[in-house]
Design a protein around this nucleic acid. Structure first.
Length: 897
RNA sequence: GCGCGCUUAGCUCAGUUGGUUAGAGCGCUGCUUUUACACAGCAGGGGUCGGGGGUUCGAAUCCCUCAGCGCGCACCA
């Protein structure tokens, strides 16, 4: 076999990238457990984890995803190479409302049917089918970019485990009093027939006439006369001199649209004295501000518009009409009645539109489920800075404190301000949706009781498990028909992907529960010995190791009896893996006592002492009587190891949807932050600065670009110069530019390889043999070049640590092209062509050493080509090549940075 | 209305805590087809860093102010 193997002169992007990705997947290195197994990562290594903000199953991969994935992949690859235990969890999002709307549209377009024509069950089957197809497309696309996600841990926001988690979360928050059912004003979309959250509203400006109506002695302004039928409160500022003579609570009669009404004067500072006449009437049923006001003064509320957007009987002759139809007619009537003294034609008004492709939002008072963001509750376990375990807090406080304390770092920092401002304006979050597709609300109602009271809102049965009959009367029940806001499950994403709750994994009749029994024994023994320490046991190593993650046989762990509902077990790193659920029947303490006191020795204790110990703990007796079983809900080892995650990298438009909700749930349910750093990226825009979208027709397919120029080139073009949080203008010429760069990498590497000197036996005898890892050139100039590489590595490392990928990538780029290729190669050409074998070898080794170093620095950004070159180097240069345990060559992706 | 961001080479954008001749990609000009690479090399042109004021030995960078553009939030009926 020849000592040199040249690289082919042409770099076949598609062939190489597909082959290399398969090689990576095959190696298992995407999975940190396998990295540890194969010795690429130390089992003691610090973890670094990212949970992918999952793409919607509604669509295909777009350039924004490519951007986001590239940033994360670069970080993951960097940290993996640095030796961290690196986990990147992939997944997809069911995106309830968006997906349902999409499938409904397809259904209408292709079969001219509505979802009601199919029925709930069949419709949901169609949605799932659509989601599944879309999912596999997205995954294929994501892989094409070279993302090093651990596919063995792939999740879906609507799979069974996530459903378990959603139920669990709902129940726990309900039990804490943080979820309640109530009649409050919500955003109702008459088109999609569902509520939506405040954050899903898109405001559109409209120029409409502003009508001044005569309301008794006052003039009031409105852009929506159709809502005014029921107005019986007239509000003004308490300090408004113009209306001094009117007193709060004063009543008077006036002629109104459909006849005389009695109005009451309300004085409140919400009124802007400078606007219009400084007087307004209110419509509490269809306006959030008016609703708040009427709550404050306990005013009557009346519905004017129904859920289909039609006027109700209160509108008299206009009843049954749609708003658009009724408005001109109402205006006409007002005119003829002389109640319309003035019209201001050009008034800029903003209407609320459902941003998920819905209709014009009409606020309505409806009975819905809400998350109370202001209610105080006890946070049992807290790892949050500034909130102690057992302390009272609120969800808002958790949202604020975790970021204010810098426990969560935001990049760029300016988003903190946006975030805090959002918190200040945050109202209770309506989480129920009248959609079919989504996590079903885990609440049941007793049918008999509902009928008796004419409403099902009272006495909800909130349960993690399905409920088949009423626990009190045994009669039939019905499940709440609503589904949960998709952002509810999103908020649980960071930790449910890592294995919360453990409960669902324990219920099966398999060996997992056996471990617990063993631990129960140990716990018992510890209790008897009056210690909090438990030594885990050998003999159950395989399985206990698996489910306890950090715990190894012989590890000492802390155990604490907290209260009847919670026992806590701390791992050696003091990560909590805790808690309690009725899962597995345990022998009672008493039985254990009987069974084990005879056979096990409790050092330093006699049987009498143990019996005495037992007698002295009546509380424990109670507890055993009461429960009779011992149950542990254990944290998944992934959760203990990888949560809080290290980094979250969403687009800044998701700050409220993903980021805030994740903080809220991880804080309240785990007492942890969901991530340590959130690094926002901008939106990828086209040359004109427009967002890429299918409807705008400027769509650009990242896969097409990858096929044409290589995923490496695409990645590079997205990452260089894209400062965190800033939008990127993107066009193909940029990709072409970085394709040229990959060609440069290829050619420079080729040059190095084709100049490997062929040593004769005589050369070897003269000591001109093989280089080693600590090889150093004698030439000072070459030593300086190696030093320079080390310096660059340090600079790039520093940038990466600060998530300044745009700077790191540019530096690596510049170094490779303009230092290595342009200068260093040129400097060494003469030596390579000369006759001095020693000089030749030194020149070559210098180049190869620097090439290897540079490939490492580039690998996070252009993983394919660097890996390909590395593989060829390894194939030909045995002196550098170590093999894995299984005899395979190591990969650049798992090399030491 | 409140808040945030942007304004740097013809175009798109970097510029980390203020510190030597302000950088990159694309584009432009000239030369070069020299056995890694024309998807290239070498050489070059091009910026009073939006305007004005201030702090400083020193400002693209910090402060004030003005202008243009963009975005987020908000209870102006």
């Amino acid at each position: 076999m020849p000592e040199n193997q040249e690289l082919p002169s042409r770099y076949d992007v598609k062939e190489v990238e597909d082959r290399i990705y398969a090689l990576w997947e095959d190696s298992g290195y995407f999975n940190p457990d396998i990295c540890v197994e194969k010795n690429a990562t130390s089992s003691e290594a610090e973890p670094f984890s990212i949970v992918l903000p999952p793409p919607n199953v509604t669509g295909t991969l777009h350039i924004g995803h490519a951007f986001e994935d590239t940033l994360q992949d670069a970080m993951i690859r960097f940290e993996r190479m640095r030796g961290k235990r690196t986990l990147w969890v992939p997944g997809t999002d069911h995106a309830a409302i968006a997906t349902q709307a999409k499938v409904e549209k397809i259904l209408w377009d292709t079969e001219h049917k509505s979802r009601h024509d199919l029925g709930r069950e069949e419709f949901l089957r169609r949605v799932e089918q659509f989601a599944k197809e879309s999912q596999s497309t997205i995954i294929r696309q994501v892989k094409r970019l070279g993302t090093s996600m651990d596919w063995s841990r792939e999740c879906y926001t609507f799979d069974e485990k996530r459903n378990q988690a959603v139920r669990e979360a709902f129940k726990r928050l309900y039990d804490l009093g943080l979820i309640y059912r109530g009649a409050r004003i919500v955003n109702w979309d008459p088109k999609l027939q569902t509520t939506i959250s405040d954050d899903e509203i898109e405001w559109r400006e409209e120029t409409v006439p502003l009508y001044y109506l005569r309301y008794g002695p006052f003039q009031i302004a409105t852009a929506r006369p159709e809502t005014k039928f029921g107005d019986k409160y007239v509000v003004m500022h308490p300090e408004d001199k113009r209306y001094e003579q009117y007193k709060h609570g004063e009543k008077f009669e006036l002629e109104w649209i459909n006849g005389p009404v009695v109005a009451t004067v309300i004085k409140d500072p919400v009124v802007d004295m400078a606007f219009g006449t400084g007087v307004m009437t209110i419509t509490p049923w269809h306006d959030a501000v008016d609703f708040d006001l009427s709550e404050r003064y306990k005013l009557e509320k009346e519905q004017i518009i129904d859920l289909q957007g039609r006027l109700l009987p209160i509108a008299g002759e206009f009843a049954g009409m749609k708003i658009a139809e009724a408005r001109p007619k109402i205006v006409e009537k007002l005119k003829t009645k002389g109640l319309l003294p003035k019209i201001e034609e050009k008034y800029v008004h903003r209407i609320a539109v459902n941003s998920r492709g819905g209709g014009v939002v009409e606020p309505q008072i409806l009975e819905q489920w809400f998350v109370n963001v202001n209610k105080k509750f006890r946070l049992e376990h807290s790892e949050l800075d500034g909130i102690a375990s057992g302390q009272e807090t609120t969800l808002k406080e958790i949202l604020r404190q975790t970021v204010a304390s810098d426990q969560i770092k935001m990049m760029p920092e300016r988003f903190r301000k946006t975030y805090f401002h959002w918190i200040d304006n945050l109202r209770d979050w309506c989480i129920s949706r009248q959609l079919w597709f989504g996590h079903r609300i885990p609440v049941w109602y007793c049918k008999a009781r509902s009928e008796e009271r004419g409403a099902r809102s009272d006495n909800p049965i909130v349960s993690i498990e399905d409920v088949s009959s009423c626990p009190s009367c045994g009669g039939p029940v019905e499940q709440d028909p609503d589904t949960l806001d998709t952002w509810f499950s999103s908020g649980l994403w960071t930790f449910t992907t890592l294995g919360w709750p453990f409960l669902s994994q324990l219920s099966g009749p398999d060996s997992k529960t056996w471990d617990l029994k063993i631990y129960g024994e140990d716990i018992f023994r510890a209790l008897v010995n009056g210690t909090k320490r438990i030594e885990t046991r050998a003999g159950k190593a395989e399985s206990s190791d698996k489910y306890w993650g950090d715990f190894k046989p012989g590890d000492v762990i802390d155990f604490r009896l907290a209260d009847e509902a919670t026992d806590t077990i701390l791992s050696p790193e003091r990560k909590v893996s805790k808690v309690v659920k009725n899962v597995q029947h345990f022998p009672t303490l008493k039985e254990m006592f009987a069974a084990y006191s005879a056979t096990h020795d409790y050092p330093g204790k006699t049987t009498e002492q143990i019996e005495d110990w037992w007698r002295k703990r009546p509380a424990l007796h109670d507890r055993i009587q009461k429960y009779g079983i011992w149950v542990f809900e254990l944290a998944d080892p992934d959760l203990a190891a990888y949560h809080p995650t290290s980094l979250m990298a969403p687009g800044y438009e998701l700050i409220f949807f993903w980021v805030a909700r994740m903080i809220l749930f991880a804080g309240s349910l785990l007492g942890q932050v969901p991530f340590r750093t959130v690094c926002f990226h901008g939106i990828v825009r086209d040359k004109q600065g427009k967002k890429f979208s299918k409807s705008a027709g400027n769509g650009i397919d990242p896969l097409e670009l990858s096929d044409k120029y290589g995923a490496d080139a695409l990645r590079m073009s997205l990452i260089v110069g894209a400062a965190p949080g800033n939008d990127v203008k993107f066009d193909e010429s940029k990709v072409r530019g970085y394709r040229n760069f990959t060609t440069k990498i290829w050619n420079a590497s080729r040059f190095v390889l084709m100049n490997k000197p062929t040593r004769t036996d005589a050369d070897k005898e003269r000591g001109l043999t093989q280089m080693t890892d600590d090889w150093q050139p004698r030439s000072e100039a070459r030593q300086a070049r190696l030093k320079e590489l080390a310096d660059i590595r340090q600079e790039i490392t520093a940038h990466m640590e600060k998530y300044e990928l745009h700077l790191a990538s540019e530096k690596a780029y510049h170094y490779f092209w303009h230092t290595f290729a342009d200068k260093i190669i040129e400097e060494n050409k003469a030596a390579l062509r000369g006759d001095d074998m020693a000089e030749k070898i030194e020149a070559y080794y210098t180049l190869e050493t620097i090439l290897r170093g540079a490939l490492k620095l580039l690998h996070p950004f252009v993983p394919f080509i660097t890996e390909e070159v590395w593989q060829i180097l390894a194939r030909n240069h045995a002196e550098y090549t170590r093999n894995d345990a299984d005899g395979r060559r190591p990969m650049l992706m798992a090399e030491k940075w």
